[in-house]
Design a protein around this nucleic acid. Sequence first.
DNA 1: CCTTGTGTTCTCCG
DNA 2: CCGGAGAACACAAG
Length: 297
Amino acid sequence: MPELPEVETIRRDLEKNILNQKITKVEVLLPRIVKNTKANFIKKLKGQHFNKIDRVGKLLIFSINPSSLAGGKVRRSKGDLCMLVHLKMTGQLIYKENDNVIAGGHSDSHDPAKVPNRWTRVIFSFGKKKLYFNDLRTFGYLKIIQEKKLEEIKNNFGPDFIQTEIDFEEFKRRIKKRQTSIKAILLDQKFISGLGNIYVDEVLFLAGVLPHRKGSKLKGGEIKKIYKNIKPVLMKAINNRGTTFNNYVDGGGKTGKMIDKLYVFARTGKKCKKCANIIEKTKVAGRGTHYCKNCQN
DNA sequence: CCTTGTGTTCTCCG
DNA sequence: CCGGAGAACACAAG
């Protein structure tokens, strides 16, 4: 379940490795994963290069430039193209320096530690170097769009606490007028972007607020605690290269180190790290929700 | 059956 | 009846 810290970790890993390299081959193994047709997708990418990777919420934006400009001054115009990549729940972007073809040269391996494997959907080649897009449940997508459409797409995302300064009074005012649970509010990508199920539970634990509480009923002090904990939770997760709960790996195919540092998520039945109470699990906003009823009110 | 991020559709309420 | 908010559903596969 890649959320902001996992997507940001991948973004940074890929920026170090694939920028300004000519895309020599694009293989689409599962056509419906690319949003415009397979033929068009390949045509728009082949022979070009990526010169920048941005992120808005959990969405990655790869800028596409003609390879004749590789390494040179980046000049972008409205007609230029971008590739959007959303990992949804089980998408992966794994970069490999060497040709790491599995034994026998087949791509039907059931070993998730090897690429390509049976969940590999798209392969980008930069000469011998490869970037694999894997997706077990195939909710993720890759899509070529015009740069001028970006503004409209970005408008669907709220600020993310990492790239943007957020005014507390505005944050409080907007929470106060919502009649739904604070968990649903924090999961709402139009309100703030980047948080998913894991980090919403973590933020609410640290803020001492129960997830089912309605936004309108929260006290100013409680909203302040939520506000103050969002950035630290995300930064800590980025510094630990993300949470590998089941499927997530970084841009080099390695697991994250954040799972051991979580307070409540996936700790049902275990002792609270602050008060030794038992962590409980329930359902809020349709999602599995973990909390400590002693530390949260 | 359960799991989840997001887009779409349905329902409710004033 | 309208608009908007929120809830429910759809999606896929293990």
